[in-house]
Structures are given as C-alpha cells and as structure tokens.
Amino acid sequence: MSSPILSVSNLERRYGDFIGCTDISFDVWPGEVVAIVGESGSGKTTLLNCISGRLERSSGSIRYNMRDGRFPDLADLSEAERRFLMRTDWGFVHQNPADGLRMRVSAGANVGERLMAIGDRHYGEIRDTATEWLGRVEIAGDRIDDKPVAFSGGMRQRLQIARNLVTRPRLIFMDEPTGGLDVSVQARVLDLLRGLVSDLGLAVVIVTHDLAVARLLSQRMIVMKSGRIVETGLTDRVLDDPHHPYTQLLVASILES
C-alpha cells in the first residue's frame, strides 16, 4: 500500500475553448473509494472518462500502477495493453446498464465474456463462475440463460456489476451507478456495492451527484464545480465541515432524513 494505484496530475480536457475539466490532480490508493461529486455540468463525468481512458485528455498525466509494478502514464501504454487493462484489471459501471451490457446475450454470457476474453475455454467452469457471481449480486441462478432485456433496471445494474467484477479487477470506475434506479432498488444496489467493494478490497472512483451515495460508499471526496476541484478531503469531514462556498451549498441542499 506504499503507492497509489492511480495518480492524476494537472489533468485538463478542453472542448475547443470550453473547459471540460482543468487543473485536476489527485491520487487513488488501493482499496480506497473516492467519490467525485458536483452537479450536472461540473465536469465530473468528463474527468471520469479521461482517467478511465475512454476520452482523450488535452494535457496532464494519468499514471496507473500495473500488477507487474510498472507505473506508466496511460498514454504510454500500447492500445492493446490499455484495452487489456480495461477488461481485466479495471471495471466500468455505467449509469445506464444497457451501455455496459450486451443486451442480446444471456446473463451468463455477459458475466462470462471477460473470462473468455482472458482465455478461459472451459464452458462448465465459465458457467460455474458466472453462477457464483450472479449469486453474489443476488440474481437467482435459474436466470442465467435469460437475456438482460428480460431483467428489471435493478437486476440489470447488478448484472453489470457482476460482469465487471468477475475478473477480480483492482480499480472500478462508476458513473452514477444508482442514478437511474427507483429509491428502493437504489438502496439494494448501493448496499451490494458497498459489501463487494470492501470484501474485494477494490479501489473505486465513483461519480455521483448524490451526497448520500458518496457518504455511504466513499472514504474520500472530491467536489467539482465548473470543471475544477473546489474541495477535497475525508468524506465525512467534507460533509460535516464543508469549507468551500459551493460545498456548503451542496450540503445545505440535502433533505434531512
């Protein structure tokens, strides 16, 4: 645990003259959940897409601590290495599960795909592993051959989580993972995520506009506004003792429960 798993420094992304995000520096450590909060348009999703290699940056560095001990900038990896990372060592949980699932193949194949991608060629073992992971996300084993189109929103989201975790990644990116779900379903997905993240010791960067989600899942928090980081710190410190005017506004806007 002596070095970060992901190190972002002076990151900027522009869209022409418009700033997507700028002057972004932070580290993510193994086993740590970092929440990026801010309202729509604050640049949090742009930031997430940049650091997960899904969007080109304009400048700055993003370094990742590989399993073999190298700590290269993502831009210095070959495309093959980068894509290999994305489907083994990393995960990406989309807000809309349809963006992260293959809707026309079965749940089992959705979970098994990453295993097959890294060379698993034993149908029975792939199926056993898929069944086990469906169980971990509370999807009944007898749904393994159903397609995600037949699943509810919450089930789809849980399936997407299982699909991402099956290769035991070390770093997961999440974009509003509970954003599209009913409140009752949200709690289940959140709790599931919380349990899996701590059981598997995952490092997570989660983008959310929901401070309650951030409080439940994250240890550290980054508050963004207009493409810039305005406050960072321990999640409960930021929420209990917000310093920046914008953070105070966000915290003051939470409905008391």
Binding site: E79, A80, V105, G108, G112, A117, R121, R127
Partner: peptide, 17 residues
C-alpha cells in the same frame, strides 16, 4: 489486437441454449 473473447460468447450462447 487479437481480442477474440467475443467469438466464444457466441459459442457459449449456443451451448447455454
């Protein structure tokens, strides 16, 4: 990039069904 996991997804679906 020789990323051929997907082709086995199709074969997997065959066996599953």
């Amino acid at each position: 990039l020789e990323e051929y996991g997907l082709i086995h997804v199709k074969l997997y679906e065959d066996i599953a069904q």
